[in-house]
Design a protein around this nucleic acid. Sequence first.
RNA 1: GCCGGGCUGGCGUAGUUGGCAACGUUGCGGAUUGUGGCUCCGUAGUGCGGGGUUCGAGUCCCCGGCCCGGCACCA
Length: 499
Amino acid sequence: MANKFPEEFLYAPHGFRDYPPLVYRYIKHLIEIMETIPQRYGYELYDGPIVERRALYEVKSGGEIVGEVFEVKGKSEEKLVLRPEMTPTLGRLIARLDQELTKPIRWATISRYFRDETPQRGRVKEFWQLNVDIIGLESPYADAEVIRVLYEILREAGLKDGEFQILINDRRIIEAILIALGIKNIELVFPILDKKDKLLQEHIRKLLEKSDLLDSEIEQIALMYRKYDRYKDLLKEKYGSYQIIGEIGSNLKSIRREAFVSFLVSQGIAEEDANILFDVSEINGHPDEALPKLVAILEELGASADSTLPLQEAVEYLKDMGVGNVLVLDASIVRGFAYYTGIIFEAFDAESLIPRAVAGGGRYDDLVSVLGGSKIPATGFGMGETVLLEILKEKGRFGEVKIGVPDIAIKPLGKDLVSKAHEIATNLRRAGLNVLFIPPMGKLGKSFEHASKRGVQYFLILGKKDLENEQITLRDIVTGDQKVIALEKLVEEILKILR
RNA sequence: GCCGGGCUGGCGUAGUUGGCAACGUUGCGGAUUGUGGCUCCGUAGUGCGGGGUUCGAGUCCCCGGCCCGGCACCA
């Protein structure tokens, strides 16, 4: 180290990760699950380029999101970016290949994506993401099926029913309510629904400003109210002595309403309508109970309840598929994206250990046509590996992930035995085993130690004495047992032991 | 971008009111070429960088860097 190489250069660039084997094997484990499960449901794998035209992302939602994209400089004039998500690429592919593809199309992909965001827990600048989509099937069965795939992945990854929830809603229902209320600016209301919790947080912050609490405390308390169920006890313990905290606590229900309604009113919505919208946004429960509430609201407004039928149907399918008990209809879920047109859903850890969605998706019936293709219905979801990884880490839910652990090691005792040992290793490898070859120098004991630290249990010792009898010694490194095996029966014997 | 916490051998930590930098663990080497994981010994830090206060700073003050949380934002 003669010259100064800045120490920080030993680390990955800010927001990016290194993946030494100890870390990588867990990610790889998840990736393999995410890649395998969709195939079990008949999905084909595909991929696109990591680099896309910047314009592709401007088409679908007005160019707002491009700010968090990595620009790529090439020789051409064309503005290129590292892809931040898959759906536009998928839309492009479908628009182009539409005519030759058998419908419905079931496609899945898992690959790396990039977003130039501020890193946080569960969020990094480079990540793997799975996308699962059904294109060309209008029936809510399609929505149900992709949700079933999502469910199975979460289960396979190690989460149990009750440890996660799949929140579901349908934009068409909310739209029908808004229309019934005579609200024209639908686009205005969706983001507000999405920010309901945040509105509460801000409202409480304002209430607390009059008190003698420190700004930093106010910030913290307001956040706790936003996630009240989780911080209820802590809040009482820490700030219970303040009168104002007690007051807010006992009036929380009306404060929630006030925070939401007053903001809507400030945006030009009538107070009466705003109150109805609040009631709608508070609907949160199993679809069997929540859906009738939405129907009732629509009927009260003198509107048709037909908009609830697709969600109803999807829920029925989901129950038939065994996913009924993790569903929660949350009428405040709309998802930030302009391109969603119908059923939308998000998966969360039930304990909110990580306050981010594990996966999210929905129906986007117009995207392909926006990109110049024919009008073709589509639904699907995206799922990154980062949040799920953090949740499993938090729960200590990583079992023994054995990736890159050799099944067996072999060491010749002497240079003149290398070719024979290599021949044996090759036979074992051809039988499908991962074989670690240890060169003949050094002490045998050290080799055991090394193999043991690599997680290897079985060790073949090829020495002259054994070889004279066409035999080889197999040692179990864990137990210390060892026996001599005839070379001609070796592969067979080893396979028997390993199975 | 904002707020908070941290930065001591590879890793994890201890360091009382400023005064010889300690412990655990891992890696590597050693007890000579067919048998280990126990023990022993050796190896390892310009204390994140820079400046200041002081006889003397890891310990106090200032500036910067990086890491980790959280907020904003989030396809």
